[in-house]
Design a protein around this nucleic acid. Structure first.
Length: 279
DNA sequence: ACCCAGGCGATTG
DNA sequence: CAATCGCATGGG
């Protein structure tokens, strides 16, 4: 099914889908191909239209929702544009949008991301889906359900290359299957949602913040990894700081769209040479 | 070798 | 009590 969505504001699929919010999108000629929920989706932009070619029952509403096209990006970028650094990032990456993933897929993905790198995370998740996800069409599979993860067992997960993360993912899946109400967290305040998430095994502040930002509609969540930590300390705080000090500063400095600032900065410090950032 | 979108439990101060 | 440390693992 082909869906056309008229877009009247910045949307850059490369910046949005390729670098670290989500790990399953691949570029094929002029399309981006990925899986949203249980549908294989191809996306491309022609002029001011987003073209989606999708299998299954997915409709315009979910595509719109996934790319958060309701976010007024121009307004958000104006609000977070507080200094030269963010301003440069916005110039380079305008059209990068926060996306709204399925919370379980997001949680599982970021448990897999612990002390790893984007390249490896993508490969691990690919193996997980291939082995444990329900087939959709050709070689595309849905993301494995918590039940499928539990059924695979720690040994089965290790065979996908999860290493020491296998037991975290297994235990988290078990709790989500049995008692942990992941999907109700969308109704909670940001800090409450994050603190509940960190009760899960393998979920610390960083992973919880990513889940809150990328799947639970918490646009003020500010994940601090080593890249963000370095740029925040050297450019903003200008002294040794804890993760809590950094997130607290970021919230007050960038405001309720701190998560957007986070993604633009993350993109920027990973792309631009350090000496260019700090002159 | 060294680094990587961190978390956890043990140890130290 | 908080801060620090070593470790789980595997690919580039």
């Amino acid at each position: 099914m082909i869906i056309e969505i008229r877009i009247n504001q910045p949307l850059n699929l490369k910046h949005t889908l390729e670098w670290g919010q989500v790990f399953r999108w691949r570029k094929a000629q002029d399309w981006y191909i990925g899986v949203i929920d249980r549908s294989v989706v191809k996306l491309k932009i022609i002029d001011n239209k987003l073209i989606a070619d999708a299998t299954g029952k997915i409709g315009e509403e979910r595509i719109h929702d996934y790319l958060r096209l309701d976010d007024d990006l121009n307004k958000i970028l104006t609000l977070i544009n507080k200094d030269k650094l963010v301003s440069s990032a916005i110039t380079l990456f305008k059209g990068l949008r926060i996306i709204r993933q399925d919370p379980w897929e997001c949680l599982a993905s970021f448990i897999c991301s612990i002390n790893s790198n984007i390249n490896r995370i993508s490969k691990t998740i690919e193996k997980l889906c291939m082995k444990l996800g329900d087939p959709i069409i050709s070689s595309y599979h849905a993301f494995p359900t918590p039940q499928a993860i539990v059924k695979a067992g720690i040994k089965g997960l290790r065979e996908c290359g999860l290493g020491f993360r296998a037991k975290y993912l297994f235990e988290a899946a078990k709790q989500v299957e049995e008692s942990f109400d992941l999907y109700s967290l969308v109704k909670e305040q940001t800090d409450a949602a994050i603190s509940k998430l960190t009760q899960l095994p393998g979920v610390g502040l960083k992973v919880a913040s990513c889940v809150a930002l990328f799947s639970l509609n918490k646009l003020d969540a500010f994940p601090v990894d080593r890249w963000i930590k370095r740029v925040m300390i050297t450019y903003y705080l200008r002294r040794e700081s804890t993760i809590r000090e950094i997130t607290s500063f970021a919230r007050s400095y960038f405001g309720k769209y701190a998560g957007y600032a986070n993604q633009y900065l993350f993109h920027y410090v990973r792309t631009v040479k350090p000496r260019k950032i700090f002159q």
